[in-house]
Simulated scan of single mutants.
Amino acid sequence: MKFIVVRVEVTPERPHGLSYSLTLHDGSGERLVGFDNAHAVSDVKGPSGKGKRKFDHKHRLRTIRPYDYRDAATLLQDFWAEVDAVLREKGVLK
């Protein structure tokens, strides 16, 4: 697990004033779960998605999806729920 959270200036990309990265990695260092706002992702695939880009997003195994950031407490709750789901999928948790 690795959590990095830094208070930053409020911008259109980070309207909540936080730069964050919450990640879970396996033993070889591969990211299994990640929630961050380090770069933009599209809400929509294809050319129509170019104008609808968000910085808040989640990584789950090898997929990236936009994430609707509400507040820090919900972010933590959503992160741990995703960690539990992936660990169950991988057979680590029952």
Rank of each mutant, 00 (worst) to 15 (best):
F55N: 05
S48L: 09
H39D: 07
H25G: 11
D26W: 04
G49T: 03
G27R: 14
I64L: 12
E30F: 14
F55W: 13
G17D: 01
P47G: 04
P66T: 11
S21Y: 07
D36N: 12
H59T: 14
L61C: 13
S42N: 11
L61W: 06
K45Y: 05
V33Y: 01
D36T: 12
R31N: 13
L32H: 06
G49K: 01
G49C: 03
Y67W: 03
S19D: 08
K52V: 14
K50S: 09
V41I: 13
F55L: 09
K58A: 00
H59S: 12
G17T: 02
R53E: 07
T63F: 08
G51Y: 02
V41T: 12
H57I: 04
V33F: 05
I64S: 08
P66L: 03
K50C: 05
L61G: 11
D26R: 13
R60L: 15
K54C: 06
K45C: 06
S48Q: 08
S21I: 10
P47C: 05
T23K: 10
Y67V: 05
S48C: 04
D43I: 05
P66S: 03
R60Y: 10
H39W: 07
D43Q: 08
F35P: 00
R65T: 15
K50I: 09
V41S: 01
R65G: 07
K54A: 05
L18P: 01
S48W: 03
S19R: 12
R65P: 02
T23E: 15
A38N: 10
S28R: 12
N37P: 04
E30R: 15
K45W: 05
F55Q: 04
R62F: 13
L24W: 09
D56E: 02
R31Y: 12
S28A: 14
I64F: 04
K52N: 15
D36K: 04
K52E: 14
R62L: 15
R31M: 15
K54P: 02
L22A: 02
R60E: 14
K58R: 15
D68Q: 12
D26M: 10
K45V: 08
P66M: 08
Y67A: 00
H39A: 06
D56Y: 00
P66I: 07
S28C: 10
G49E: 02
K58S: 02
V41F: 02
L61Y: 13
K58I: 00
S21K: 10
D68W: 12
S48I: 06
G27E: 15
G17V: 01
I64D: 02
S42L: 03
S21A: 11
F55R: 08
G46E: 04
H59V: 15
L32V: 14
H59K: 09
F55T: 03
A38Q: 11
F35D: 00
G34P: 05
G51H: 04
G46P: 03
S19N: 08
N37L: 04
S42V: 05
G49F: 00
K52P: 10
S48V: 06
P66N: 04
R53C: 07
Y67D: 00
R60H: 14
G17Y: 01
G51I: 05
K58T: 02
T63C: 09
H25N: 15
G17L: 03
R62K: 14
H59A: 08
A40K: 12
L24R: 07
R60F: 06
R62N: 15
T63I: 11
K45H: 09
